[in-house]
Amino acid sequence: EVGDRVVGANTTPCFECYHCKKNEYSLCENLNYLNGAYSEYVAVPGHMLKYNFYKIPESLPYEQAALLEPLVCAVHGADRIPVKTGDDVVVIGAGPIGLMFMDSLALKGARVIAVDLSDYRLSLSRQFGAAVTVNAGDKEHVQRVKEKCNGGRGADVVVEATGFPEVWENAINMVRPGGTVLTFGGTKKGTSIAIDCQKFHYEEINLKAVYHHTPYHVQWALNLLTNGSIDGAKYISGVYPLENAIDALESIARQEGIKYAVLPE
């Protein structure tokens, strides 16, 4: 109704296509996107409003509710990988999505190892559940990561959250025999990687991709923000007025902070 505080996802599946009928909602053949922001008004399609929009609980500030869409992608990814309490899980990339993965995986009881090129971001990662950090600038960092997991055997699960093909390859080399690699970071069209076929086959490595989100995970992520299991305030590094939105985006491009709230007033 008029005056309701609302938050929603940027897509909604059709629930009628081949993939939707198999509950593969992130692969919906008719997935419609509602992209764009910084407008005074936005018209939300009725189908999207019905299935993927929610009233914001009174306890949750707008700024934290706005984290919903990126968070739900990480929650979806974390839900689709076999992580048990005590597992050694590596997250490569300590940007906003990587930190959200760390947060989500720590909630599942994993021992999280953060890998990134930035010492600043690695230091931040400890606030989001990382127990161990490794700088990827070290030429031997892949071996260093393996040594810190399962007595040198490698990680139970590796999450790639950068979108660089060479990092996909590093992830495969960090995982233990029988482990799982989640290639979450999207690469450029036409990109390919090289895999050691013998290693892949004889070590029974599981290579998995997870895209986007589902309505179920949207509701789940909103609950995590609302009940405080995920502390949205930790992700907000500062506030910019709307007229300085470009400055906020450039700060992110320079890897200054995590997220910035852009306020119209």
Rank of each mutant, 00 (worst) to 15 (best):
C20Y: 08
I56H: 12
S125I: 00
M102S: 14
G109F: 14
G129P: 02
L124G: 00
E58Q: 11
I81V: 15
H47V: 11
S123H: 04
L107F: 03
V91P: 04
E63A: 15
A37S: 15
D119M: 04
A78H: 05
G46F: 11
L68C: 06
G129D: 05
S104L: 03
S26P: 01
A65R: 12
D88I: 00
Y18K: 13
S125G: 01
P96V: 09
S123M: 06
L105V: 05
A110G: 10
G46A: 13
F53C: 13
V44S: 04
A131L: 11
G36F: 12
G109Y: 14
A131D: 07
S125F: 00
K21P: 01
C20M: 11
K84V: 01
M102A: 14
P61M: 08
I81Q: 07
L124Y: 07
S26Q: 14
S123P: 00
G109C: 12
L68F: 11
L34Y: 04
L107H: 05
K21G: 02
D88T: 00
I113C: 08
F101L: 03
P70E: 11
F101D: 03
V132N: 04
E58N: 12
N35E: 13
L34C: 11
Y120F: 10
P82L: 06
P57G: 11
E40T: 11
V75A: 08
D116Q: 04
Y41D: 09
G129E: 00
V83F: 05
V90D: 02
E63R: 15
H19D: 10
D88C: 04
P96I: 10
L31C: 04
H76A: 06
P70N: 09
S104Y: 03
G95H: 05
A106H: 14
K84H: 11
S26A: 15
S123C: 00
S123N: 12
L49S: 13
C20E: 06
A130D: 01
S39I: 03
I97E: 07
V83G: 05
A94Q: 13
N52R: 10
T85P: 01
E24W: 11
V44N: 08
V90H: 08
F128P: 01
L117R: 09
Y25I: 09
N52Q: 13
A78R: 02
D87R: 03
D79V: 00
V90M: 10
A43E: 13
I56F: 12
C28E: 04
A114S: 11
Q64H: 14
N23D: 12
P45S: 10
L34Q: 13
H76C: 06
K108Y: 06
T85M: 14
L68V: 06
E29Y: 08
A114F: 09
L34S: 12
Y33C: 05
S123Y: 01
A114Q: 03
L124N: 02
S39T: 15
V112W: 00
L122S: 08
